[in-house]
Amino acid sequence: MQLTERTLDNVNIIAINGRFDAHTSKPVSDWLEAHSSLTPPRIVINFENTEFIDSVALAVLVSTMKRCRQNNGDVFLAAMSQPVKIIFELTRLNKAFHIFDSEVEALVSFGV
């Protein structure tokens, strides 16, 4: 798995390339934990090149969302690849997260 990160107008963006699962979640989890503690946290996760996601990875995202919203911020998910979309639909977590078709749309929602 490869991570690409950048910041734009106080929005922290991370793109996850490859598999995001129990074996690879640690660096993503660490990055998200660090950035969701900022006040207010504003995070965009780009899943365009994410090949696979499992329930451990979903648990990381749920914890992140919870932490962000507790700190008056949010995490937006963007450009979901088909395998990621399927898992979100299966767990109905697509109803709980703000999901955007593209990274640009997610950034616009943050007012960038």
Partner: peptide
């Protein structure tokens, strides 16, 4: 040890809140 039940409870809370 994949996901502790405590985190699964968070999923349920999220669904309930939604």
């Amino acid at each position: 040890h994949g996901i502790p039940i405590s985190e699964i409870v968070d999923w349920y809370l999220l669904h309930m809140q939604t």
